[in-house]
Amino acid sequence: MSITTPSSRAIGLTRANWRLMLRNRLTLAYGLILPLLPMLFLFSGTRGDDTIAMTSSTTVIFLLMLFPVYYNLLSMFVSRRDELVLKRLRTGEARDSELITSMAMPGVLITLVITLAAVMLGFPLGQQVPTNPILLLAVVLLGAGVFTALALWTAAWTRTAEAAQITSMPVILLASVGPMAPIFPESARRFVELTPGSAMDTLVRLSWFGYDDGSQLDFAATWGASSGPMLVLAAWVLIGWALARTYMHWEPRH
């Protein structure tokens, strides 16, 4: 008898979810086109201007976290829970972790592909190649972990896919407040820097451009400078998964 394994089950389910994503034009537009739009910033201003390049790159990553990873998973989870698809799948051999992985994977794969595309498209437009690509990859994956967990947590109080447009606001705020940190007073900025959006913003600047609060770092130096915001992101992974584990439910509540 051929026995399934966690990876074979997750791959089989991911294949189906990928297929479903490709058939949903709106999700595809949000996942593939919208995150690349900030690359148009590179056509403005002076070619090779790091400020514009950093704004473009951090916005690309921000949109990737919000749409293919967070919002796609949130709406997918809520609608499938509502339609009892998740309940049905849980009667089979697949474990909960495999179901979650398979639903998150298409968004994460798109995120990796678009990040690579942004690097490749940006280079001919004067944007530098990442200073520390390994760190950039780690940041994207860790960020995907945070926003996957936050999507599952948000799903706990989201009754319908339509309601997700409202219930996602707190997480969107948590993600978008980071890039706005400089406009906050010093006392508030310390707290803003503890948000996942702020940590992501800092880490993308650091790993892609070697930029650390005005200084230019090389590959080796970026590792040391990344420890603080990486700890913030790691903490958010733990917080997010703890919240998701405590509050998420697999069947609709009536």
Binding site: S2, R9, G12, R15, E83, E93
Partner: peptide, 23 residues
């Protein structure tokens, strides 16, 4: 009462399910 993703065909649904079932 249960559901399946509406955008999958019958064959694709059975393929998806089959990937999660031993034998």
């Amino acid at each position: 009462a249960s559901g399946f993703p509406g955008d999958l065909t019958v064959r694709e649904t059975l393929e998806m399910w089959g990937a999660t079932v031993s034998a």
